[in-house]
């Protein structure tokens, strides 16, 4: 049986005390244990940022890549070995600034990734510049007049791009977080999990106290239909005093990208032995050139 302790790494997190990343880290480990995925059966891919260091603190296959390029690297891993459950953990800057294009393409591709965004609505590692999810008017070192831009809406964007699983959770509710990640792990295609992650050092506005009274759970409403895209869009636009969390949308009507690739019908690529071409294969190739 897989337990949370199986994921214990000798490396201690360097996150600030109270950082929302601790809850996400624990939820990931708990979710993996719950679904019975052992450290060697998963691959956790990070980018660059505070949250992106999660693989270093977790005993599991992992890869800490480049700022903004988490998703394409993870896509390559998934296509090379879809026997591994591939999970991305990266920040809002990583995912929605440099990586936004990749996210939209991963969604329309429906590649089998669980894409966890540690959305603290600030740049943590580079010490406090505004991010794509920072509110308009937000004053930071690089936005001394207040941010002129509107924040991105990752939930609506993912829905528009054709994502088949779109969810949001927050670091203040470990059980909800764990449950949401468990559901994402059970999804066959691309699964976006945007997580409000308080950054206690550089973002005092979007704190635990800010979110606690505002968030409400979509799944508390028994009439909410996760297969209704228009309803999902409507909730995605809800913002302000009441902010929905939970699974906005989930459909399984579209095969994952890797399920459609002819070369992968025979199973994962990476474990297959690599052999020289057979004589009849060579003959066929040369036949094309006469």
């Amino acid at each position: 049986m897989v337990t949370v302790d199986d994921f214990a790494s000798p490396v201690r997190p360097t996150w600030c005390t109270g950082c929302g990343n601790f809850a996400i880290w624990n939820a990931v480990k708990r979710a993996l244990a719950q679904v019975g995925l052992a450290p060697h059966q998963v691959m956790i891919v990070g980018g660059i940022g505070c949250g992106s260091k999660l693989p270093d603190y977790t005993r599991a296959n992992g890869y800490m890549t480049l700022h903004g390029r988490t998703v394409p690297v993870a896509t390559g891993i998934r296509l090379a070995n879809h026997g591994l459950r591939v999970i991305c953990t990266h920040g809002d800057g990583d995912a929605y600034a440099e990586g936004l294009g990749h996210m939209l393409h991963a969604a329309r591709r429906n590649i089998g990734l669980v894409d966890i965004i540690q959305d603290n609505r600030i740049y943590g590692l580079t010490k406090g510049q505004y991010s794509p999810t920072s509110d308009r008017g937000r004053v930071t070192k690089t936005s001394p007049w207040g941010a002129f831009e509107l924040p991105v809406n990752p939930i609506a964007l993912a829905l528009a791009a054709g994502a088949t699983f779109v969810a949001r959770s927050w670091s203040g509710d470990l059980n909800h977080l764990t449950e949401t990640i468990v559901r994402a792990l059970g999804h066959r295609g691309y699964a976006l999990v945007d997580i409000f992650q308080p950054c206690v050092t550089f973002n005092r506005q979007n704190s635990y106290d800010y979110y606690r009274p505002r968030v409400y759970k979509l799944q508390d409403d028994p009439t909410y239909d996760v297969t209704d895209k228009m309803a999902a869009f409507a909730r995605a636009l809800e913002w302000g005093d009441r902010i929905p969390i939970g699974v906005f949308y989930q459909v399984e009507d579209r095969p994952a990208y890797e399920e459609q690739v002819p070369a992968l019908r025979a199973g994962p690529l990476a474990p297959r032995p690599l052999e020289k071409l057979r004589p009849e294969q060579i003959r066929r190739l040369l036949e094309e050139l006469v």
Partner: peptide, 22 residues
């Protein structure tokens, strides 16, 4: 496995991911 992707950044990152996976 062959795929046309969104840009060359993704192209090499994916190839690196695949290389990493063996």
């Amino acid at each position: 496995v062959t795929l046309q992707v969104e840009d060359e950044i993704a192209a090499l990152c994916m190839a690196i991911g695949a290389g990493y996976a063996g």
